[in-house]
């Protein structure tokens, strides 16, 4: 089997550096701290003979939310410098004059970063074992969560790769990636709040369509659905925002649509990135240049 040489090289270099150890160590430290805090908070009443049924849900939600936020922060950081870094090191031209297709370079870079994210997710599995001690969460739910993590990470990473090809500097690419990420996570909520306030007076009672590009909304919808539409949806705290469609089970679950939208965004971003780094490409917008 021929493995993408860019992926192989990136994994070798990334795993050799102290940065990789630092990211994994820091990541696990934060998750462990959260897990410990939740466990401690729920075991204060140590003389009680009953087990609080809400504990496992609380622990699951706490660890899942922190992990999701960490992934949203880490994925763009790993990819935003991927192609811009090659340009800064003056190695991009050397790759492009080989018979390696531009799409292989882009995909190799993305997969290398995703392999890093995958290691973080796998390393976090023991943290979730705390939840299993108390029951209430199934393997299917954990699988859904991990699947959503991976797709979201690929989407965030693809945006990082996209900006990495369109701007020359790593720092600029990182800033632009986070800016778009912040818009997707929070800008869409602001738009939704204003829109629903003006046109529906918060009487919408459905998943706002713009939320399909919002990873936080998708994540919130996933947790909301996993707990029967009654718990876990952080965004439900904002009045008028519904993390499930009215009736909850009507049609495809919003978080699943979010997943498909994330995949579509990733494909588009990677396609544009591969096109951009191809030095002899035809421009998508060439018709605009013609007089």
């Amino acid at each position: 089997m021929i493995i993408n040489p860019v992926l192989l090289k990136e994994i070798k270099v990334k795993m050799r550096s102290w940065k990789a150890v630092g990211i994994i160590g820091g990541y696990l430290f934060v998750l462990a701290a959260v897990a410990l805090f939740i466990t401690y908070a729920n075991s204060v009443d140590m003389y009680s003979s009953t087990i609080n049924p809400q504990f496992s849900i609380g622990a699951y939600t706490g660890i899942a939310v922190i992990q999701f936020i960490l992934i949203l922060f880490i994925a763009p950081a790993l990819t935003a410098g991927a192609v811009a870094g090659e340009r800064e090191r003056q190695t991009l031209d050397l790759l492009l004059c080989t018979n390696l297709a531009p799409r292989s370079i882009v995909i190799g870079k993305l997969l290398a970063s995703m392999s890093h994210i995958l290691i973080l997710i796998i390393a976090s599995v023991p943290m979730f074992s705390i939840v299993f001690l108390y029951g209430g969460i199934s393997i299917v739910e954990i699988s859904q969560l991990f699947g959503f993590y991976i797709v979201t990470a690929i989407m965030a990473g693809s945006i990082g790769i996209f900006f990495s090809t369109y701007v020359k500097r790593t720092i600029a690419a990182t800033v632009l990636t986070y800016a778009l990420g912040i818009f997707m996570c929070f800008g869409t909520i602001f738009i939704a709040v204003f829109y629903l306030r003006i046109f529906y007076n918060f009487d919408y009672q459905n998943y706002f369509p713009l939320f399909y590009i919002n990873p936080l909304a998708g994540f919130s919808s996933l947790l909301t659905e996993q707990f029967g539409g009654q718990y876990g949806g952080i965004l439900n705290m904002i009045p008028g925002l519904y993390m499930v469609n009215n009736g909850a089970t009507k049609g495809m679950a919003p978080w699943l649509i979010n997943t498909y939208v994330n995949i579509a965004i990733s494909v588009i971003m990677l396609f544009l990135a591969a096109m951009k780094i191809n030095p002899v490409r035809g421009s998508l917008f060439s018709f605009l240049k013609k007089r």
């Binding site: 040489p5 192989l8 270099v13 550096s17 090191r89 003056q90 190695t91 050397l94 080989t98």
Partner: peptide
């Protein structure tokens, strides 16, 4: 130059050999 500083000489050439 266009070299990856964090690779060994042997690995650097091995990388391009894999590409080809």
């Amino acid at each position: 130059f266009g070299v990856y500083d964090d690779l060994k000489v042997d690995e650097y050439l091995d990388f391009y050999a894999s590409i080809y």
